Simulated assay, not measured.
Amino acid sequence: MSEDAEQEEDAPPKKSKFPLIIGLVLALAGGGGGFYATWSGMILGTDSAHSESEETKQEETRIDVAYVPVDPLVISLQAPAQAQYLRFRASLEVPTENQEEVEKLMPRVVDVLNSYLRALEPADLEHPAILTRIRAQMLRRVQVIAGLQKVNDLLIMEFVLN
């Protein structure tokens, strides 16, 4: 027994974990405080006057647009076994000063959209992100016809497979 007692006396005392816990709590508090300071704009934030002027500028540009409806299209898709139809309806977002010019080009726009949608296969339409891709492709084709600055966006109002 005397040997066991000597071994216990020779072992160094255990260090306290209290400083480690305090350091961890302070690190978490500092990280949370830093996140809040940057998120709220106290650090690296923009001027409120600058952001307000940008907001009013964006509102003015949003108000200065017109929506030109595209004639509804019904397209038969190339299905091997069964006949499927795509019902498509959209609107073009254009600046108000270009509205008349774009309305005059609507037969060409409908022709381009019709030919693009006819080239699609039913398997192409099964991908989850296909609507975004189709929208981007059609917008690009419309902008080639009308001009880049004359058409801001293409809004899909109806896209139904029957």
Score class of each variant (00 low, 15 high):
Glu103Leu: 12
Glu97Pro: 01
Gln78Tyr: 08
Gln84Asp: 00
Leu105Gly: 10
Leu105Ser: 15
Ala90Tyr: 04
Gln84His: 02
Ala81Asp: 14
Glu100Ser: 11
Arg89Pro: 04
Pro107Ile: 09
Thr96Pro: 00
Ala83Gly: 00
Leu92Pro: 05
Gln84Arg: 04
Glu103Thr: 14
Glu97Thr: 08
Ala83Cys: 00
Pro95Thr: 04
Thr96Gln: 14
Ala79Met: 08
Gln84Trp: 01
Ala81Tyr: 07
Glu93Ala: 06
Pro95Cys: 05
Glu100Ala: 13
Gln78His: 11
Lys104Val: 15
Gln82Arg: 10
Pro107Ser: 12
Ser91Phe: 02
Leu105Glu: 14
Glu103His: 01
Arg89Cys: 03
Glu103Arg: 14
Ala90Gln: 03
Gln82Ser: 09
Pro107Lys: 13
Arg89Asp: 12
Ala81Cys: 06
Pro80Val: 07
Leu105Pro: 07
Arg108Phe: 14
Ala81Lys: 11
Ala79Phe: 08
Met106Asn: 10
Glu93Ser: 03
Glu103Tyr: 03
Glu97Met: 08
Val94Phe: 05
Gln82Gly: 05
Tyr85Arg: 06
Lys104Asp: 15
Glu93Phe: 00
Ala79Thr: 12
Gln82Glu: 11
Ala79Pro: 06
Gln99Thr: 09
Leu92Tyr: 02
Leu92Ile: 06
Pro107His: 11
Pro95Asn: 03
Glu97Tyr: 07
Leu92Ala: 00
Ala81Arg: 11
Met106Pro: 11
Pro107Trp: 12
Tyr85Gln: 07
Pro80Glu: 13
Pro80Leu: 10
Leu92Trp: 05
Leu86Asp: 04
Ala79Ser: 15
Glu93Val: 07
Val94Gly: 05
Pro107Gln: 13
Val102Ser: 07
Leu105Val: 05
Ala90His: 05
Arg87Glu: 13
Glu101His: 13
Asn98Ser: 13
Glu100Tyr: 08
Ser91Ala: 11
Glu97Gln: 11
Met106His: 12
Arg87Gly: 09
Pro107Val: 13
Glu103Ala: 13
Phe88Val: 00
Leu92Gln: 07
Lys104Ile: 14
Pro80Ser: 11
Asn98Thr: 04
Val94Glu: 06
Leu86His: 01
Arg87Tyr: 10
Leu105Tyr: 03
Glu100Met: 09
Pro80Gly: 04
Gln99Val: 05
Arg87Gln: 10
Phe88Ile: 00
Arg108Cys: 04
Leu92Thr: 06
Pro80His: 09
Val94Leu: 06
Ala81Phe: 08
Ala83Glu: 03
Met106Ile: 15
Glu100Gln: 12
Arg87Val: 12
Val102Ala: 13
Tyr85Trp: 05
Asn98Arg: 05
Arg87Trp: 01
Ala79Gly: 15
Ala83Tyr: 01
Arg108Met: 15
Val94Asn: 07
Gln99Asn: 03
Ala81Gln: 09
Leu92Ser: 11
Arg87His: 10
Ala90Gly: 01
Arg89Gly: 01
Glu97Ala: 10
Gln99Trp: 00
Thr96Arg: 13
Val94Cys: 07
Ala79Val: 14
Leu92Asp: 04
Pro80Trp: 07
Leu105Ala: 15
Val102Gly: 08
